[in-house]
């Protein structure tokens, strides 16, 4: 029994270690400002999500789509939790292509909460053409699509610096400490005071990076809080049931005169 548990734990530790080992070259250690949504009792900070939404809309949305997110998600539990009226107002600021109408024409109309976030470009090729040959990735699951997750996105946003001496960059290419290969075609999107936060928080680059990363982490995992909550209850329940079944097992096996 002890051996069983030892073995199990060894395998578990091995799995966890093996999965966190990178197969790549040496990479910079990522920045970590502390994320409230990580850990067993992790939750999203509503204020941070709302500020992050503002950063996304005012800074990122010009190039980056977030097509799997719907405006109605903004008022659902576990997210920024804007009110339904706020969400209606937010949605109506954007134009959505709909149709065809009875004349056979496509037309535009204001977005409704049920619509998905409007993309800045009609399609991927248009996005690439408008951005010097590089595609600004869709951000719906970007936090899950990068090794290092939230730490990586946060670090990247703050990782712009002058290239080391001797390294020359083409036009439209910038140096970033955390990007694989160090070259990135996105210029530094953040600078202090770029956005004016509605709640008065000072919009430093670090603050905006943290808020928009939190927002993107929620966008990638909108059910994170429910998952943590249900998980906690499920595991406590399983532990209690395991203990009960353990004693049931002992009772039953006590009937066997000599267990070898």
């Amino acid at each position: 029994m002890k051996n069983f548990l030892k073995f199990f734990l060894t395998i578990l530790v091995f799995c966890l270690k093996a999965s966190s080992i990178s197969a790549a070259e040496q990479t910079e250690k990522l920045l970590n400002p502390g994320w409230g949504f990580k850990g067993f009792f992790g939750k999203f900070d509503r204020g941070s999500l709302q500020r992050g939404y503002q950063v996304y809309t005012e800074v990122c949305a010009a190039c980056h789509s977030i097509k799997y997110l719907s405006y109605r998600n903004l008022s659902e539990t576990g997210g920024p939790e804007f009110t339904e009226d706020q969400v209606k107002a937010i949605a109506s600021q954007f134009e959505v292509t709909d149709g065809p109408n009875d004349d056979g024409d496509m037309f535009t109309r204001p977005a409704r909460p049920a619509d998905n976030f409007v993309s800045p470009y009609a399609n991927e090729k248009a996005a690439i053409a408008a951005n010097g040959g590089a595609y600004p990735p869709d951000m719906s699951v970007l936090v899950k699509a990068r090794k290092g997750g939230a730490d990586y996105i946060y670090s990247l946003l703050l990782g712009y610096e002058d290239p080391p001496s001797g390294l020359s960059l083409d036009d439209g290419v910038y140096y970033n400490k955390y990007m694989a290969g160090n070259k990135i075609k996105m210029s530094n999107p953040l600078s202090d005071g770029l956005v004016e936060y509605g709640d008065g928080t000072s919009a430093t680059s670090e603050q905006m990076a943290k808020d928009v990363t939190t927002f993107l982490a929620w966008a990638a995992e909108p059910h994170l809080e429910a998952r943590h909550k249900i998980g906690f209850r499920a595991i406590i329940y399983l532990i209690i049931l395991t203990i009960l079944v353990y004693f049931s097992m002992k009772k039953i096996w006590s009937r066997v005169e000599s267990k070898v």
Binding site: L241, L244, S248
Partner: peptide, 19 residues
């Protein structure tokens, strides 16, 4: 005591299966 353990296990188990 033995029946109590079994009954409680079954009951808790049933709750889990339902959930």
């Amino acid at each position: 005591r033995r029946d109590f353990i079994f009954t409680t296990s079954y009951a808790l188990g049933a709750v889990g299966v339902g959930a």
